[in-house]
Simulated scan of single mutants.
Amino acid sequence: MVMNQGRNVLVIGGNRYFGKRLVERLLAAGDRVTVLNRGSSPPPPGAAHLVADRDDEASLRAALGERTFDVVIDQVCYTPRQAEIARRVFTGRTGRYVLTSTVEVYEYEDSIAPVREDAVDPLTVAVDPDLPWDDPAFLDTHYGEGKRQAEAVFAAAGPALPWTSVRVAHVLGGEDDFTGRLKHYADRIAAGEPIAVPARNRPATYIHVEEIAGFLFWAAGQDFTGPVNAASHSTLSTEDLCAAVEAHLGGGRTVLSPVEVGQVSPFSFFRFYGMDNSRAVRLGYRFSSTRQWLARAVAETLGKDN
């Protein structure tokens, strides 16, 4: 295990939600942190700021100049094109590259058991940079595929760019949760309105916003490579989430409306979205259980207005 304090760390993205919390943890640990983004918002106090378009290799190189880093943590790499630019730019410029990935890389797996990292080996994933990755609608519907191919690009770099991809479970909690997913449930439960779910509704793994920030901070200080799953212990079902929302509201009524096809509510799934977190545990990370923080996450997200 490598625990370097006072490291020189670059965070690409990191202006909101768990990225913001990650930057705050790095600064609190005494790391020298630089945040790179398009300039839409400033980084947390104490971090240096670089402005560049990561999709423009010339812009990225110009912003970085001759800077080198102990660790790069990439919060906003969604496509193989972005990954290819990053691989070219950062090979030889950093000792470690941490890519924030997603449970959605497993969208084609339908295991009844939690999936391990080897279910999707980046070295076997075909990369197609010519797909319309610049089309927001395409990217939105191919989110998992974009992350899979981005991982494959970094894997192809070999030892020249030591990397890990943190496959993040569904994130809950925080007063700044911008997704509106739990509010979807709160509004319907408060009104007693139907909540569309698959006829065969499957559970998933989750992680609290503070825990994933902590995990990324921890991963930045390690020396393992390749994918790693990040999820709290114990899956949650839609019913679990609804029960927690009802408890927070102090009333209301959950009405689940099963559908065979069509659009369903967030956090309801036609297939099992469970990740095996045992690799991270073997490497030394201690996860909490979803039962320890679910009520808190709901209260943080919904606040006093619900």
Rank of each mutant, 00 (worst) to 15 (best):
M1K: 06
M3C: 06
M3I: 15
N8Y: 05
N8E: 14
V9A: 12
N15F: 07
R25G: 05
L27T: 11
V35E: 01
S40A: 15
P42K: 08
P42G: 08
P45C: 04
G46F: 08
V51N: 02
A52D: 01
D55Q: 07
S59P: 06
F69Q: 01
I73P: 00
V76I: 11
C77P: 00
T79P: 00
R87C: 09
R87H: 14
R87L: 15
R88D: 09
F90D: 02
G95N: 12
G95D: 13
V103A: 13
E109F: 01
P114R: 11
P114V: 10
R116P: 00
V120C: 02
V120M: 03
V120A: 05
P122G: 03
T124L: 10
A126P: 00
L131C: 02
D135V: 06
A137L: 12
D140G: 14
T141S: 13
Y143R: 04
Y143E: 05
G144S: 07
G144L: 03
E145I: 07
K147W: 12
K147Y: 07
R148I: 00
A152V: 05
V153S: 04
T164H: 01
V166S: 02
R167I: 01
V168T: 14
G173L: 02
D177N: 12
G180N: 12
G180R: 02
R181L: 04
L182R: 04
A190D: 07
G192F: 05
R202P: 03
T205S: 14
H208K: 01
F215P: 00
W218Y: 15
G221T: 12
G221K: 13
P227Q: 09
S232K: 05
S234G: 13
T238L: 10
L241K: 03
L241G: 08
T254Q: 12
V255G: 10
E260A: 13
G262V: 07
P266S: 08
S268T: 13
F270D: 11
R271M: 11
G274D: 10
A280L: 08
L283C: 04
F287W: 14
S289A: 15
W293M: 08
A297Q: 07
V298W: 05
V298I: 15
V298T: 11
V298Q: 03
A299F: 04
D305L: 10
N306S: 08
